[in-house]
């Protein structure tokens, strides 16, 4: 081939510790430590055992973070997943009360979630010209609507036999089973995003889905799989949620989608797609959880906690923009 000029191009990656620490994820890690120190200072009962004990309340949302991050990385979104949790929990409770054996109840919960995910995936790939925000806004209403019909007039259902659910709510020492599953998911999803061809394709689609398609990335397949997996994990989330509440009602899972999206965005994953890392999302999820636990322990009003989280999120989104505009200004000043 050509190469006449004999020009060489470097292929040595830059792996410095300073760069890693200055990254968004590095900053988050520092914030995570800072939040923990803060909580320890304000709350005398903020111990590892206590945190682990109180965590399950919040862990159910973290399941949704992983596949949601995938969908956001592709530049799409799913705001129906809270409704999916509600429908899956409702179906699981109703089947349990109808006398279905526990293994069947688990299957019903997981299957309901998966089917909801597949419906989203089908609609998102079949109607590529429609924004997924609109598609999932539609399914959000539909899924919750079906759940409300199933729940009937009372608008809620309580488990008549919670033995099975009590079992999955079990613990190893102070650590709930759920925690291990969340960690397992975290590792699995991170490795896939960082190390596998699937992950590379996610970023390709989010950065430029047309080029990805022209380059042989199966865009529709990737979307369908991710939505389906999000549905499946909504099922998992619903089962663990039921194991804590022994029932379901019309508000079950409400706001879960926004919490999952907030964790991801706070973790540096751009809703425009192609940017951010799962590690960031995971650190931010645990930072938010620790903050909630700590502030909860000093009996802070949950609404106030929400306001604090919201303000934090806005700062997180603004910070990169502000630093960008400052560096732009500096550049301009040096040019002029």
């Amino acid at each position: 081939m050509a190469g006449k000029s004999g020009r060489t191009i470097s292929a040595t990656p830059d792996k410095s510790l300073k760069k890693a620490l200055l990254s968004w994820e590095g900053m988050l890690l520092l914030l995570f430590i800072a939040i923990n120190i803060l909580c320890k200072c304000i709350s005398p009962v903020y111990t590892l055992t206590n945190v682990l004990r109180e965590m399950p309340k919040y862990l159910t949302e973290i399941f949704l973070l992983f596949p949601m991050a995938y969908i956001l990385l592709m530049g799409e979104i799913d705001i129906s997943v809270g409704s999916t949790v509600c429908l899956a929990a409702t179906m699981a409770c109703l089947s349990s009360n109808a006398g279905v054996p526990f293994i069947g109840v688990l299957a019903v919960g997981l299957l309901t979630g998966t089917v909801c995910g597949m419906i989203n995936g089908f609609l998102a790939t079949r109607f590529r010209e429609l924004p997924t925000m609109i598609i999932t806004l539609g399914t959000q209403i539909v899924f919750r609507g079906i759940a409300e019909i199933a729940l009937g007039d009372g608008g809620s259902v309580s488990l008549t036999n919670a033995d099975g659910f009590r079992m999955i709510a079990g613990k190893v020492g102070p650590v709930p089973y759920m925690f291990f599953i969340v960690i397992l998911c975290a590792v699995l999803f991170t490795v896939i995003a960082e190390k596998r061809v699937f992950g590379r394709s996610l970023y390709a689609i989010g950065s430029n889905s047309r080029t990805a398609f022209y380059s042989g990335v199966k865009v529709n397949q990737m979307l369908f799989i991710s939505y389906t997996v999000l549905g499946l994990l909504a099922g998992v989330s619903a089962l663990f949620l039921t194991s804590a509440t022994y029932g379901a009602n019309t508000t079950t899972g409400k706001g879960f989608e926004m919490d999952a999206i907030a964790m991801a965005v706070f973790g540096g994953i751009s809703t425009a797609g192609g940017k951010g890392k799962l590690v960031g999302g995971i650190i931010s999820a645990f930072t938010i959880t620790c903050l909630r636990v700590g502030l909860g322990q000093i009996n802070m009003n949950p609404q106030v906690i929400l306001i604090i989280l919201g303000a934090l999120l806005i700062c997180a989104v603004l910070l990169p923009n502000i630093s960008q505009s400052i560096s732009d200004k500096k550049k301009k000043a040096s040019r002029a």
Partner: peptide, 15 residues
């Protein structure tokens, strides 16, 4: 790197 050099791309690194 090999293919970018083959076509004589004017670039410093592959990154």
């Amino acid at each position: 790197r090999k293919f970018l050099e083959d076509v004589d791309t004017k670039a410093v690194t592959i990154f």
